[in-house]
């Protein structure tokens, strides 16, 4: 078997080409998410749709991995702290060729390798068991320290949610990463402004988020997490900063729950979004229509 290494994007690719590649991946991933949600009749579809662009940017542009060998020692590590975003992560793993697309329909079923909350012991390519929120960044600090100690050039990405900023352990880890100057660590915070009990600013005010990370000594960028061009530029800046100063980086991504499907974008926001049986097909059609309209207009503007 030929082992292929997926290197971020081809170095010769222009930003425009990289954006197109990531957007196409995100589009396919959103379809995977809707299909999984329909097969299970439920799931964290709203969050997976909001995070699809970020996850696509990671898997289709940033991460070095070998689809045939998910345990390859030299791989970059992507740590999903928010276990319930697993549905979105499975879509990314399918897009990356690590999990077969056919397997996605088993999401959340008995004996599936794709449980509702992501666990490292179940799924290839799933580095940690998330779900007890506030753990991911602490593990990521250790992963980054361990890799650096052993002379690995691999990078560590930790995906966490704005809700996890409520957890004190996240800030223990933020200080630890700065103290140990972990330039090989990038945190990605999905700010969808929504938590289990309601809007983040009514549950526990976390703003000003940017200032908090900056005060902890991180290189901070805040972008529209559904703007792929902005995301890729932020990843590029983070890598450059890490190279130059050895600082950990955080990319704060403001995202929209249900992104890409107007029916869900406009629905009352809920941690666990209710979608009726007949609505899944409508969601898919809206997703496709939106993507086609956008790519058509982008084609015209070229």
């Amino acid at each position: 078997m030929t082992i292929t290494e997926t290197v971020r994007a081809p170095e010769t690719a222009s930003l425009q080409e990289r954006v197109a590649r990531v957007e196409a991946a995100a589009y396919r991933m959103r379809h995977h998410v809707l299909n999984m949600g329909e097969a299970q009749g439920q799931g964290y579809v709203g969050q997976a749709l909001d995070a699809a662009d970020v996850l696509a940017a990671v898997y289709a542009d940033q991460l070095r991995y070998r689809a045939e060998d998910p345990e390859w020692e030299g791989r970059d590590r992507f740590l999903l702290s928010t276990g319930h975003y697993a549905i979105g992560h499975y879509a990314a793993l399918a897009e990356a060729g690590i999990v077969p697309v056919d397997e996605l329909e088993t999401y959340g079923s008995d004996d599936s390798r794709l449980p509702m909350s992501g666990m490292s012991t179940y799924t290839p390519g799933m580095e940690i068991s998330g779900g007890s929120l506030g753990h991911g960044l602490t593990i990521a600090v250790g992963t980054a320290l361990g890799l650096r100690l052993q002379g690995s050039g691999a990078r560590v990405f930790n995906f966490l949610s704005d809700g996890e900023l409520d957890e004190g352990s996240t800030w223990e880890a933020a200080m630890g990463a700065h103290h140990h100057q972990l330039g090989n660590l990038t945190a990605i915070v999905d700010i969808n402004a929504l938590q289990a009990d309601g809007k983040t600013d009514t549950v526990l005010r976390t703003e000003p988020v940017l200032d908090k990370w900056a005060a902890c000594g991180w290189f901070v960028q805040r972008v529209d997490g559904n703007d792929v061009g902005a995301l890729l530029a932020a990843f590029d800046s983070a890598a450059a900063k890490a190279e130059a100063e050895g600082k950990p980086s955080v990319i704060l991504c403001d995202t929209k729950v249900g992104r890409g499907v107007p029916l869900l974008e406009d629905r009352e926001k809920a941690h666990f979004m209710r979608i009726d049986e007949h609505e899944w097909q409508i969601c898919r059609e809206q997703l496709t229509a939106g993507y086609e309209a956008r790519t058509a207009s982008e084609g015209e503007s070229k």
């Binding site: 580095e127 250790g142 361990g146 890799l147 880890a173 630890g176």
Partner: peptide
Amino acid sequence: PERFFQMGMAEQLLFGAAAGMAQTGVVP
């Protein structure tokens, strides 16, 4: 000294990080 890591008075970080290190193949 190069194999010792001071994590500060942060026990959640201490053990989360120890797990992350163990995942990379070291024995904390």
